[in-house]
């Protein structure tokens, strides 16, 4: 696959774009008792993958396909009712923008950073970063889909002292579905912006606002 190394770099959990401080809803799910072991983590990740993950992956694919990132940012807003999740997405978008401009500098990233200095939704920046790295819509979708499951799995290891081998095995079991979601998102990303998937998860929206009010927490979201 062309660009495989660039994709690995972009999807690496160590890529310095701020993701490590966010649990993507896992912290709230752990506190509510909905995630407490590898099996419940797997169902959480599966649900996230096919909802928020699919939506994010399609936005990333659309950005990588060359759609107007500002129109995609607006589409992301319409798909994100929770203001806490919008704030987090823009904050992480800004952090990713910083990292992407340092690693794969390009005029499109510069223009978007100038147009929206307070940040755009992270999946849109991810797609544009992929594009700047010479990757296509499918690869952008793969990075986004993987991020949507690897983030909560990593967080669950810290939150539950879960055996890291078990958490990684969860991600391994999800790889066929992760690929399938990325494929669908990659295809959708080449279509019209209004037809992009809008899959959503009620508990992720509800608990994001609850989590934002906690005075004591390990993760920023």
């Amino acid at each position: 696959m062309a660009g495989a190394a660039a994709l690995l770099l972009l999807a690496d959990g160590r890529f310095p774009a701020g993701g490590h401080a966010h649990s993507q809803g896992a912290e709230a799910a752990v506190k509510a008792g909905r995630v407490h072991d590898a099996a419940t983590l797997e169902e959480f990740c599966r649900g996230r993958l096919h909802t928020a993950g699919l939506t994010a992956a399609a936005l990333a694919a659309a950005a990588a396909a060359g759609h107007d990132p500002l129109a995609l940012d607006e589409a992301a807003d319409a798909r994100t009712p929770s203001p806490a999740l919008r704030r987090t997405a823009r904050k992480l978008g800004r952090q990713l923008m910083r990292a992407a401009r340092a690693t794969w500098p390009g005029p499109e990233l510069d223009e978007l950073a100038a147009a929206r200095p307070q940040g755009v939704h992270q999946p849109v920046v991810l797609g544009l970063a992929a594009r700047s790295a010479g990757l296509g819509p499918l690869e952008a979708a793969q990075a986004a889909a993987y991020d949507n499951v690897s983030g909560p799995a990593t967080a669950a290891v810290r939150l539950l002292s879960l055996d890291p081998f078990h958490a990684t095995a969860v991600l391994a079991r999800l790889t066929p579905e992760t690929d399938e979601v990325a494929r669908r998102a990659g295809t959708a990303g080449s279509g019209a912006v209004e037809d992009l998937p809008a899959a959503s998860a009620p508990l992720l929206e509800i608990t994001a606002e609850q989590h934002a009010t906690w005075p004591v927490r390990l993760f920023a979201s």
């Binding site: 160590r14 310095p16 774009a17 701020g18 993701g19 490590h20 401080a21 966010h22 649990s23 904050k91 800004r94 952090q95 990713l96 910083r98 990292a99 967080a155 810290r158 939150l159 927490r217 390990l218 993760f219 920023a220």
Partner: peptide
């Protein structure tokens, strides 16, 4: 205040983006 996701050293060394922001 910067939140560090249970990894304070990461936020000041490996991934400094939130602190720079």
């Amino acid at each position: 205040a910067v939140e560090t996701g249970a990894c304070p050293h990461t936020a000041i060394r490996d991934d400094i983006s939130a602190n720079l922001e």
